[in-house]
Design a protein around this nucleic acid. Sequence first.
DNA 1: GCTTGTACTTGAAACGCATCAAAGGGGCCG
DNA 2: CGGCCCCTTTGATGCGTTTCAAGTACAAGC
Lengths: 370, 370
Amino acid sequence: MAKVKISDVAREAGVSLGTVSNALNHPEKLRPETLKLINETINRLGYLPNQSARQLAGGATKSFGLVLPRLDHGFSLQIASGAHNEARKHGYDLLIANADNDDILQDHYLRYFMGTQMSGVMVQPMASPDWHPAMTKMPVPIVHLDIHCSAPGYYVATDNEAQGRIIAELAIARGARHITVVGRAAFMQLTLRVLGIHKALALHPDIKIEVIDAGEWNTAADGYSIGAQIAGRPADERPDFVVGLTDVLASGVISALVDKGISVPEQVRVAGCDGNPLAWSGSVPLTTVAPPGYEIGRKGVQLLMEQIENKVPTKTKHIHVGSAARTVTAATTAEDINRQELVRPFLLERASTQASSQTDATAINLGAYL
Amino acid sequence: MAKVKISDVAREAGVSLGTVSNALNHPEKLRPETLKLINETINRLGYLPNQSARQLAGGATKSFGLVLPRLDHGFSLQIASGAHNEARKHGYDLLIANADNDDILQDHYLRYFMGTQMSGVMVQPMASPDWHPAMTKMPVPIVHLDIHCSAPGYYVATDNEAQGRIIAELAIARGARHITVVGRAAFMQLTLRVLGIHKALALHPDIKIEVIDAGEWNTAADGYSIGAQIAGRPADERPDFVVGLTDVLASGVISALVDKGISVPEQVRVAGCDGNPLAWSGSVPLTTVAPPGYEIGRKGVQLLMEQIENKVPTKTKHIHVGSAARTVTAATTAEDINRQELVRPFLLERASTQASSQTDATAINLGAYL
DNA sequence: GCTTGTACTTGAAACGCATCAAAGGGGCCG
DNA sequence: CGGCCCCTTTGATGCGTTTCAAGTACAAGC
């Protein structure tokens, strides 16, 4: 049980300390026999390198940290997935921390990662990351995900506004007269979706729009109760188009409507946002706009790699993923954007289900309920 | 950009190195004014403690590592969620790594975590963890999740067999004559579910059962193509009950059946396993058995805490969560089990959706398609 | 004025490893 | 046989902390 260290291995194998170290880090420098001897000794003794010591002695390790606001949100997982694959491709490890919707905790893990000599850190912040300007001056490359930063720094944003616009345009095309948006609009990303909807509707002042908050957790139960409330209204105050800011919410709304005898989509059409595979792989697929989480994770790591390789982390660089059209906000002036990538949305067929979680693009899934 | 270290803070504040260290770790030992001075200096300089150095010098940190086979599987997330909350409750951090269904990677992260002086490590292995006996002799507490270990060691298992049994009993109660199980039975946990089904059917030799592998990823598309295959059979070779070893699979099967004109549940009933919130929050809820992932994560951390506090990590201890009935396998002899907890399955109501992801128990969701 | 005690503060010693200049050991050529 | 060069191995040095025995300053008690 006593921890075996490198010197134990060295003594046992009859070589010097530095040789064992080389066996671990630069195997090509050793004579094959020596290497073999050392490896056998390592296995026999059950030696496990002390990562802390390696990092202390050797500088940064090849690993990235990723702080996510929650783990039970499919979107965050796609980010994690994309980041993971890209990181492994470059030979980096990826460690993930759950901030549990808590600013303090998010900050805590961020500091933790930076202090661990990670090569880079990524966050999907729940609020604008301007909360702590000191963060951006840290000696570790950092990238913000799924958010627009007004502060200088690297980030990769998805065009949440475009998502809203896409949904709104769909609604218009379906002849909607009264749109109800369901979800906690106070969440940064959701706010932008709502903004996109409003913008798209600017040309159609005759279309009525309302937003109903769904509580903090955006659960199906929240959706259900809102759906029930909608169902209870007199027919002429009822929307003819409901947008769930989340697939789960939309799903709950549909349950309630159907339970209360309102037919979907005949009387009320419903659409969601997120591209949850289950939402549209069922027999009655839900229409949903999928933000390119996987791609965001991937780009995030690429941005990290750039900073690491260039060693010039002073320049601001942003990437926009999945924009259907370019958005201009105060934060993204021309000078801020050194590179911008637009990925066109496209339609997914019913049966090619898995594409939605692996694709590089913003996807619109056309399903039922619409 | 140059990293500021503790000695810089000390010099700048005009105190000694050890005093700054005390300010960080034992603030109560310092005179309030000194503490204040140091804290101000720390903030002014943007000092960030080097975690590697701390760990090296100070021994283990208060943090746990969790290695998961995949991140896009809801069940693993529930584990992560439960582990996270329990860990935070004890003041520990939780870091998560994604093994991406890869043995090597799983091993890699495991070693990484152990080498980082984590206080404890947890894995949800994809195969039996006996693959590497050396692991169990490591100087770091380790707990295996969602699996039965025959090797001595700590683990918390859910009763996968019981899940299968529950589903099978449901099928019997519905008068099934021919059951088709869809999924990659080679996955440890799924194997046990299938075993449970077989055992439950032992008393009903007249009921026909078949298992169809769904490929490695268990996607909805896999389910769809299997569903299509089933639909293509002559009516008398078609099952009257399909069990998706995963909700997503079941979902895909239903899509295919419906597309091919086979009515569900009139002609073929379908059930899933996993308790994916979306699976049964829609308008046509899927029947599914939910393994208590959240609780598994929680118990895992508790087991870790026990080992840490007792400092007697030699005793084998197992916890069974969510057993509907006790299973006895060769691996769990009476002596092995020091403590066993049985949580009774219960029914969830349609509208109380969020419970399924937060509950402590194995849940059976009764839905449509059945 | 001297001793004892209290309340902080100091700084040297480890923590386990990667690094790298230097040393060792052949082989080859002149 | 000496001189060179190349391949391999050595071990002292330092990475940024924590820890802890030793030190300092000051007050109280005699």
